[in-house]
Amino acid sequence: MTKRYEEFDSLRGLAALIVLIGHYMMVFPAYESYNYELNSPFIVYMIKETPLRLFLSSGNESVILFFLLSGFVLYLSINNTKFHYSTYIIKRICRIYIPYLVAIIISILAKVLLSHNNMPFISNWFSKSWTTSETPTLLLQHLFFIGQYNTDSYNNVIWSLVHEMRISILFPLLIFLFIRKKFRYSLVCFIILSVCSTILLYLFGSSVKITSNLLSFHYITIFLMGSLLAKYRHVLINCTLKMKKTIKILLLAIAITCFMYEGIVGEIDFLNNYIFRDYVVSGGVCILMILSLASLTLSTFLRSKALTFLGKISFSLYLYHLISLFSFMYLFYDKLPTIFILILSFFFSFLLSFLAYLFVEKPCINLGRYLTRYGKIIVNVTDTIEYPIQKGKIR
């Protein structure tokens, strides 16, 4: 019988919370337009340039964590002798697309009912959302994940789900071609793909339509990193278990430093290239994932009830927090101070996410299981993650 890595659920929950906080901070123009050379307010400097960045300004880094975790989980579900693509794709649609569809419909309805033209300027980021006129084409693009469209129109976070679904469709083929080989072959293939995606982005990155597809190519390499981590997880965990506590602490410090890389080299344009930054962040996340399983202290922390609950609702929190934010801003901006609006929206985001988890996510997961069983195409492949370390063996 297999068990879930609850630590990874908690990491996903923390990442979703960081994304939420980062978006709430984007309401403030001083935060959104921060530049070290512009003498921004000291509090903004503290958030952007100090360890506070880890919790208040690491939204993009958190998405990289999502992609790595997806690569890890998908490898374990695909790397099975009885793997069936039909079972896999039905479960992915039920797990990602249907909850997305419900969320985007709610977002569209909230935008139509609550947004208005006399909203004063808040920040450029805020002004990009819920201001686009509805057209049949735009609605169809959002409902069916088709075409190159403005993913900021209703719910800014869906850009990552577009890449997630694209990559999920192709990922089994990539696993069989690249990851099921020897490590040396897999590593060479990963390097080639990374170099090719980087070159293509530099050559054609100025075109919006082309860039979206090339970014999927780039993020495939992040997924593959997660898959390689899953494939060699036993070796990596066992090696880490044998390390002294001081070495583990040093590795954790390195992981956190990599995660905050953008803030550390923010003023050095060459080093802060987003492609290179993604790989640095990915390296840090890989270290963190292994440590979360091989360190008793970190594992116990991540298995706490509060964090496991956060992990359960993480996908819904990711999908619904902006709906809550935009709705509350339009409803109360001229009635309450902004900070009070954000506090109210923060708590409502958790309530909305919990309800969505109960009445959308869980039924969709069960639907995927039912459809694959009913169609007699289910095999011994589950969405759970194998737990390779026996109880009492984590140090």
Rank of each mutant, 00 (worst) to 15 (best):
S127Q: 14
F350C: 02
K128S: 14
P388S: 08
F83H: 08
L173D: 02
L140H: 12
K335I: 12
I169C: 10
L140W: 11
R184M: 10
L138T: 14
L336M: 14
E61W: 01
V281W: 02
G284Q: 06
F144I: 12
S353F: 05
L74D: 00
L65V: 06
I21P: 01
Y31M: 05
K182A: 14
F332A: 08
R4G: 08
F28A: 04
S62A: 13
D334M: 13
V188D: 09
V102T: 15
G22V: 07
G59Q: 12
K128G: 13
V281C: 02
D334K: 15
T87D: 08
V63S: 01
H23K: 08
Y31L: 08
M26C: 05
I222A: 02
S353A: 15
Y24W: 05
E386I: 15
L174P: 01
N380G: 07
T132W: 03
K111M: 13
Y100C: 05
L215R: 12
K312C: 06
V285D: 00
V63M: 04
S227H: 03
I146M: 13
M289G: 03
I237S: 00
N118L: 07
K181D: 09
A356Q: 10
G59S: 13
L307C: 06
M119T: 08
V235K: 14
H84K: 14
Y100P: 02
M260W: 01
E61K: 02
F183A: 12
H142C: 11
R166T: 13
T308P: 05
F276A: 14
I167E: 02
E134W: 13
V63N: 00
N117L: 11
G392E: 05
S33V: 08
I313P: 00
M1L: 10
V44G: 05
L143S: 10
V381Y: 04
I47P: 01
I89T: 06
S153Y: 00
S227A: 15
Y219T: 03
Q141R: 14
S282Y: 03
G71V: 01
I96W: 03
A253M: 12
H163S: 09
N213R: 09
I192M: 15
S133P: 07
Y387N: 13
L371D: 07
C196N: 15
R53S: 08
F83P: 00
Y318Q: 04
L367D: 01
Y5V: 13
F183R: 15
Y34S: 03
Y320L: 15
S107H: 01
P29S: 06
L138E: 10
L20W: 04
V19N: 03
F259H: 04
N150M: 14
Y232T: 13
K231F: 06
I89Y: 00
P41F: 05
S216M: 06
N238E: 12
D383G: 13
T198W: 11
A30P: 02
H23M: 06
G392H: 07
E361Q: 15
F144V: 12
N79Y: 09
I169S: 04
